[in-house]
Amino acid sequence: MKKINTIQKKIIEEFKILDQDFEMTLNYLMELGDKVPPIKEKYKIEENIIKGCQSQVWLTYKLNNNGFTFSGDSNTEITKGLLSLLIRIYSDCSPKEIIDSNLFFIEEIGLNRFIGTQRSNGLKSMKNKFKIFALSNI
């Protein structure tokens, strides 16, 4: 839990320079998205799809004693950027840590101001997918 909050605080710090400017934030998210390696086609299956987005999103994981390793992909750069933040936050966490976590960085960096219902549904579905994976491994 401590780790999850520490990374969130770090992300908030990194986004400060963007001054809650919508365009700069989007461009930064796209840059982050660009850095995410694409997942293999074989993982783009129904159980890995995240529903509720205008875009296609896939998430897959591995779990060992050190916690989760996630890989995700999307056909849109902005969504991939958002996904990469969630992956960064939840990587190496245990299922319990993910289930108990509370995501506050989205509001803090002002993303919720830009993200309307359609878009936030996608984000919500992404957040839920992490918790669903965590729950199925408890």
Partner: peptide, 13 residues
């Protein structure tokens, strides 16, 4: 360029 990204980037403008 995906339409979703484009729509958001245009909205920013």
């Amino acid at each position: 360029t995906h339409y979703y990204d484009l729509g958001l980037l245009l909205d920013a403008k």
